Amino acid sequence: MRHCSIKSNNYTYSIVLPCCDFEFGKQVHAEVVKVFYLSDEFLGTNLLRMYSGARDIDSANKVFDEMLMRDLFTWNTLIFCYSKCGMGDVGVELFRQMDIEGVIADDYTYAIVLNEFAFCSQVFEAMQVHSLILRCGIRLDRFISNSLLNLYCKCSFMFVIILN
């Protein structure tokens, strides 16, 4: 495309990024910044995924901060990125910030956060999130159910599973 008269756009870069290795992905990111400002949630999320895959949390966070608009998938990607890099406590803070900004969590968000609480054995914090899930009437799908099972088993709170 570079050698033709066809001009690339956000969608082009969004499709190309998942096909790139990390080094070429950084070059594509540099070209995106040069050609136009990061204005698309889909493109930004793909950049987050690329940096997350390479465990480059600083670059992922920079992309997130520079995004003009962030959707739920973008938030979930960065929260997962922090969890994957062993910084789940920051991911939990992002979860709280997401709520403050009015972005409504989904089952995947809750599953990431609950798994992080299980990893850190923070059962009481997790129970607050579990209570929130129940109060909001969110259906306990397989992601949330598995995360709750993982959490309560790791933290020896089997009676909670029986009661729910």
Rank of each mutant, 00 (worst) to 15 (best):
Leu78Glu: 10
Phe80Gln: 14
Asp65Cys: 04
Leu72Arg: 12
Ile100Cys: 08
Phe73Cys: 12
Asp56Leu: 06
Asp107Glu: 13
Ser59Thr: 03
Phe117Leu: 02
Asp107Ile: 07
Met69Phe: 15
Ala54Phe: 00
Leu114Ala: 02
Ser83Gln: 12
Met69Lys: 15
Asp58Ala: 11
Asp89Arg: 13
Phe64Trp: 08
Ile57Leu: 11
Tyr51Met: 13
Met67Val: 04
Asp89Lys: 07
Ala118Met: 02
Gly102Phe: 12
Leu72Ser: 04
Gln97Thr: 14
Gly53Pro: 01
Asp89Cys: 05
Phe73Met: 13
Glu66Trp: 03
Val113Ser: 02
Leu114Cys: 02
Val63Phe: 10
Val63Trp: 08
Leu94Val: 08
Cys81Trp: 09
Asp71Ala: 07
Asp107Leu: 09
Gly88His: 06
Tyr110Trp: 10
Val103Glu: 01
Ile79Cys: 06
Leu72Thr: 06
Ser59Leu: 09
Glu93Arg: 13
Asn115Val: 03
Ala118Trp: 03
Lys62Tyr: 13
Met87Val: 01
Tyr108Asn: 01
Tyr110Glu: 02
Ser59Lys: 11
Ala54Gln: 03
Ile112Thr: 05
Phe117Pro: 01
Phe64Ser: 03
Arg96Pro: 09
Glu66His: 14
Ala105Asn: 08
Thr109Glu: 03
Phe117Ile: 07
Tyr108Gly: 00
Phe64Asn: 04
Ser52Glu: 00
Cys85Tyr: 13
Val63Asn: 06
Ser59Ile: 05
Cys85Asn: 13
Asp71Ile: 11
Gly91Thr: 04
Asp107Ala: 02
Met69Thr: 14
Met87Lys: 06
Tyr51Trp: 08
Ser52Asp: 00
Asp106Val: 03
Glu101Lys: 12
Ser52Tyr: 01
Asp99Met: 05
Leu68Cys: 14
Asp56Ser: 09
Val92Ala: 07
Trp75Pro: 06
Gly102Lys: 11
Arg55Ile: 10
Thr74His: 12
Cys81Glu: 05
Glu116Asn: 05
Ile57Trp: 15
Arg55Trp: 15
Val63Arg: 07
Ile57Lys: 00
Tyr108His: 11
Asp106Trp: 15
Asp58Val: 13
Gly102Val: 10
Val63Ser: 08
Val113Gln: 06
Gly91Cys: 07
Gly91Gln: 05
Gly91Lys: 06
Asp99Asn: 10
Gly88Cys: 04
Ser59Ala: 12
Val90Gln: 10
Thr77Ile: 09
Glu66Pro: 00
Asn61Phe: 12
Val90Met: 10
Tyr82Ile: 04
Asp106Arg: 09
Val90His: 08
Met67Trp: 07
